Amino acid sequence: MHVFATPPLSISEAHLLNIVFTAGYVLPLYLTKYTRLSFSHSAVKAGDGRLKQPSDRWRDDPAVIRARLTSATISTLAACYITHSVVSSRWKGEESVSNAFCINLWDLTSLRLGLIVHWNEPLVYLVTPLLFLGPLYGHFLGSGLPFMSKWTFKEQVVGKVFSWTGFRNYVVGPISEELVWRSCIIAAYHLAGASNLLMIFLTPISFGAAHLHHGWETYNKFGRTRQALQRAIVMTLFQFTYTTLFGFHCAYLFLRSSSVFPPMIAHTFCNFMGVPQLQEELKWYPSHRRYIQAMYMGGIVAYICTMYSWTLADNSFFWFANQSKAW
């Protein structure tokens, strides 16, 4: 295990890197006309929303998605390179250690970023689906699970993934966001000697905050009225809460498994599932009300029972008893 004799970063420096990586991912989305959204001042209302005008640039427009995916990719690569630079520069300062070992610094960075696959520990990838037992049961009742009557490979896989919105939601989004907020940001705090609790419950706050800018789109799409502002505030607060809670989960998976791939897979899975629709499912399938409630509760219980025993990798780099002596 490659460790430093003393924490190579301070907590203040870790906070700074957190801010830099978060801002570096979000701010470029508003710096160019290609990535920036635009909304016409005169718009025709449709219900409680508004119709898209030819001059508008909305989030799901293919041209906007392509530009933003390029921006996210560049920001992610930059964050990974900065992390590598920090690790290598501080490691070279450990003369007594670096002289004793021939270290491949890219391998050392890969370890810090969690770019490791534990092929012999597949259970870590099942913890998130267990939490979603309730929603999965709802899909089962609607014959929407794979190979059921209302599921087709062409519609549910090709139609979703092989589109610009699907490529964003299920491929680039999960990969880039997990590399930035789990790999790079947690690496910074780990180098500063932060506790596991701090890394689990602090780092996802910036992940949730990175989604706050979606409120601007909601405010514009619903007409820039007082009601639109109220809707934007409610939806933004909900999204901030949901993404922060999800960030707790992914940070825990990352630290326990010492791999970024379990949170990546969990991220893609959750994007496929969407937000649980318990109330709607109770209305759609009233005769299965008790079973639906039981499956939702069962998913929570199963998650609690497996989140500890199924997630710890052998020789985990980040999760060990005497954390104060390893950075």
Rank of each mutant, 00 (worst) to 15 (best):
T6Q: 12
E121A: 15
P129W: 01
W327C: 10
Y242A: 14
H190V: 03
W284K: 15
H214D: 00
D48W: 05
F261M: 13
A23S: 13
S55I: 02
Y285P: 08
S42H: 14
V301E: 10
V26F: 11
W119Y: 13
T218I: 15
L77N: 00
L141N: 04
H2T: 11
A232S: 13
N220T: 09
K283E: 10
V161P: 08
L255E: 03
L113C: 08
V158E: 04
D56C: 01
T152W: 02
I300F: 14
K283G: 04
L69Q: 08
A294I: 03
K92G: 09
G299N: 02
N271F: 08
A326H: 14
V86F: 11
I292G: 06
Y219Q: 04
S183K: 04
F246R: 05
L31T: 11
Y252S: 12
L197Q: 08
S143R: 12
L197E: 14
L202M: 07
S309L: 10
M235D: 13
R66V: 15
S324G: 04
R90Y: 03
R231H: 11
R59M: 12
A188D: 02
R57F: 07
F201E: 05
F261N: 11
T109W: 01
L198I: 14
L51V: 12
T70E: 00
L197S: 14
Y25E: 07
Y291P: 00
S12P: 02
S85P: 08
H211M: 05
L133A: 15
S176W: 00
T244K: 06
L245P: 06
V3K: 04
L197I: 13
G223H: 08
S309C: 15
W310T: 12
F317S: 07
Y30A: 12
D314R: 14
P28A: 06
T236C: 09
H118L: 02
V127S: 10
K150H: 11
W164V: 05
C270D: 02
T76K: 02
S88D: 13
R112C: 01
V301I: 15
F261W: 15
G166L: 02
K33R: 12
A302D: 09
L312Y: 10
E280R: 08
I304G: 15
P54I: 03
A251I: 07
V260S: 09
R90F: 05
W151Q: 09
G173C: 05
M295F: 10
Y219H: 12
A313M: 07
R224P: 06
L113S: 01
N322K: 12
K154A: 11
W119N: 09
L282M: 10
L77H: 00
G215I: 12
T268H: 00
F147N: 11
Q279S: 11
D56F: 05
R57Q: 13
S195L: 01
L16H: 10
S88Y: 01
P62Q: 03
T244L: 11
C80R: 00
I11K: 06
T243S: 13
L255P: 00
R290W: 08
F39K: 01
G298C: 10
F272T: 12
S324L: 06
T128H: 02
A266L: 07
V260Y: 02
V260W: 01
S55W: 03
G134Q: 13
G173E: 02
D60E: 09
S309A: 07
K92E: 15
I103L: 03
F317A: 08
F21T: 13
G159F: 01
T128Y: 02
L29V: 07
N18W: 05
E95S: 07
L312H: 12
